[in-house]
Design a binder for these strands. Structure first.
Lengths: 190, 190
DNA sequence: GTCTATAATCTGATAGAC
DNA sequence: GTCTATCAGATTATAGAC
């Protein structure tokens, strides 16, 4: 079961997200394509398992990338670590990025269970950024736009390179300054 | 010929970029699928025509969105117009955004002619931003990351809405401040 | 749990009549 | 320039033997 999902990742890394075929997949696990239906009811269900596994990997990755004890002593460093962690997670596996964060495979909807894990991952990221002062929704949206923009440009226009990765610290400084200004503005109103 | 490409856009808007089939396309233009080969040598050539048409539309769109006489009297307003123009071009047709700015359809390489038009479009954008003070490559890269990030988040997480579009002016102010600071730093070194 | 057989359908592309 | 006929293969999925 885990072996099939692992082989499915191999296939989509070679042939693109839409290029997953049961024959190809079966060949890779030493089975006939039809035998896979003993494990998964449909191709859709395989995508769903990949989606779930991807978000679990994302949670683990971010937990490792960020030191949750340090944020209040060094908020700038913590923000840089978090954004760098996110961008590197995305660039380390472009097709996973596509499945998890873009809506590019038509007709695919994650199952309730998978969706719950995805929401948990978002909530963890939201909380982490909130500690760093990114508390309101518009500010958070601006951060996610910047983070996904860095990741997607790195993937599309300089795969394997560091052209956009190099801009992470500068982007974080910029975002933190912006967030501080907008927090002042709000507290002044109070 | 133009009618076929137009119908091809219809198909991919309904079935996704990878979901273009010759039979489906033929049906839509009142032809047998095989007759399309009198106009295009392959399905690949149809994607290429769409790619070309997309970049021509991008050039026209940006020419309309930005007033090239005003940038020196009102750089902030001009920058806002340019970024807003870009994001609205992307969100107005997500699948076109996918074909033009992401590398999501495996095996597709634009023809030399189409690629030339794409490069022309990039060069025009580069020049426009240079007038606004975005002259060095890293700063330009930061802008493209922010712009594509706003567009892709709007498309993926709030299709049809304005959640990220609303952040454009704030993002531009943030980027302009950052660009100004980094220009100062460089001229101080001289 | 894996196999064979097969259904039912789709795919891009070519040959040749008209 | 559009058609019919067709190739040669792909696709997901099901039924039933072992």
């Amino acid at each position: 079961m885990a072996e099939i999902v692992s082989a499915a990742w191999e296939v989509v890394r070679e042939h693109g997200l839409a290029g997953l075929s049961m024959r190809d997949l079966g060949e890779r696990v030493g089975m006939r394509a039809q035998s896979i239906y003993s494990y998964f009811a449909s191709k859709h269900d395989i995508y769903d398992a990949m989606f779930l596994e991807g978000y679990e990997a994302f949670i683990d990755w971010m937990d490792s990338a960020v030191d949750d004890d340090e944020p209040e002593t060094d908020p700038v460093g913590s923000a840089r670590l978090a954004v760098r962690g996110f961008v590197e997670f995305c660039t380390s596996d472009p097709v996973r990025y596509q499945l998890l964060f873009q809506r590019t495979i038509p007709g695919f909807e994650p199952s309730p269970r998978s969706y719950t894990v995805a929401e948990d991952a978002y909530e963890r990221s939201r909380r982490r950024l909130a500690i760093l002062g990114v508390e309101d929704q518009p500010t958070l949206d601006l951060w996610t736009a910047m983070m996904t923009g860095l990741a997607s440009q790195q993937i599309s226009n300089d795969p394997g390179g560091t052209r956009w990765e190099k801009l992470i610290d500068r982007a974080v400084d910029m975002l933190l300054t912006d967030a501080r200004d907008h927090t002042y503005t709000e507290s002044e109103r109070a």
